[in-house]
Design a protein around this nucleic acid. Structure first.
Lengths: 159, 159
DNA sequence: CCTGACCGTCAGGATGCCTGACGAAGTATG
DNA sequence: CATACTTCGTCAGGCATCCTGACGGTCAGG
């Protein structure tokens, strides 16, 4: 994105840099926990696959991508032991996609990483500023977008 | 609906959505001004090419990518009339990359779009919250990163 | 004037998405 | 119940955006 007049960088740039920072820290944590074979694109699966499992089409729709693109991710994550696909007795077209225990373990690590990151930010900035940041960002985002489902084992999940 | 507190989306997700919102608006403005042949990747050039021009290697370094990747962008933007590459009499290995008038026009539109977006945000949120957002994001970003050069038009001396 | 560093390019590959077309399986209709 | 339509997941192919490796031309320091 092109620059802003002189000194202060454009808001979009700041947003991008802050996002890069957070995602880099997440990857570090995942890698440190032994989940070093995940690609960034895999996040689309981890962010949207619910506890009960879901079909490929459903997962693709939630993540806002095509079945074909999602299929590639799922096949890869299955090969790496994060997912399994079980037949659905009620509909023989379908194979329900679920996390394996290893998959859930990765989810837990990601959730813990996000929680730690936000806690650390809260300490560094003060809780008020963190709350304000969250509120302001929510206001910027077109309404409803921010509320779309994300996977949670019992809680929240990553983007 | 029982009043379970909706789990707040992870901060990274909010950042991503807000960024997507801003960049989408930028693209709209560019397209509306007739610059509809730009790809998102081209932003790396527009964000880092200074008024005096720059070599391919320099541009690649500023943008944090390889010469080869940058070259593809530059060749494309040259074909589309946004850039020109002129030989450097002082160093025959080099072809200095510069914006054409059309290129500068696109930069101006982008800058105006950013300014308008921030002004509109300032009205919607109040100037204090916008200032706070900017400050908080700057604090999140690792020091120095936010200060890396971005292209600014200023008053340009073109021959 | 040689050697090493630097400049830009060619070739090839990985990733992450897309569209189109298809057979198998479910569902609605007459 | 037969037919038509829809939906599910896959195969095939393509495009964009980056990467690494290798190379020949050019510069600069001993």
């Amino acid at each position: 994105m092109p620059g802003l007049p002189a000194p202060s960088p454009p808001l979009a740039r700041l947003l991008g840099l802050a996002l890069a920072e957070l995602t880099a820290r997440l990857r570090e944590r995942l890698a440190a926990a032994g989940f070093d074979d995940q690609r960034p694109a895999h996040d689309a699966v981890f962010a949207h696959l619910p506890p009960g499992g879901l079909t490929l089409s459903g997962l693709a729709e939630r993540a806002g991508m095509t079945k074909q693109a999602m299929s590639e991710l799922v096949v890869d994550l299955e090969a790496k032991g994060y997912l399994l696909r079980r037949p659905d007795p009620a509909d023989r077209r379908v194979r329900v996609i679920e996390f394996t225990p290893r998959g859930w373990a990765a989810v837990e690590v990601a959730l813990a990483a996000f929680a730690d990151l936000e806690r650390e930010l809260g300490e560094r900035l003060g809780p008020d500023r963190l709350t304000a940041l969250r509120a302001t960002l929510t206001d910027i985002v077109p309404d409803g977008e921010a509320r779309r489902a994300t996977t949670s084992p019992g809680r929240i999940v990553r983007s």
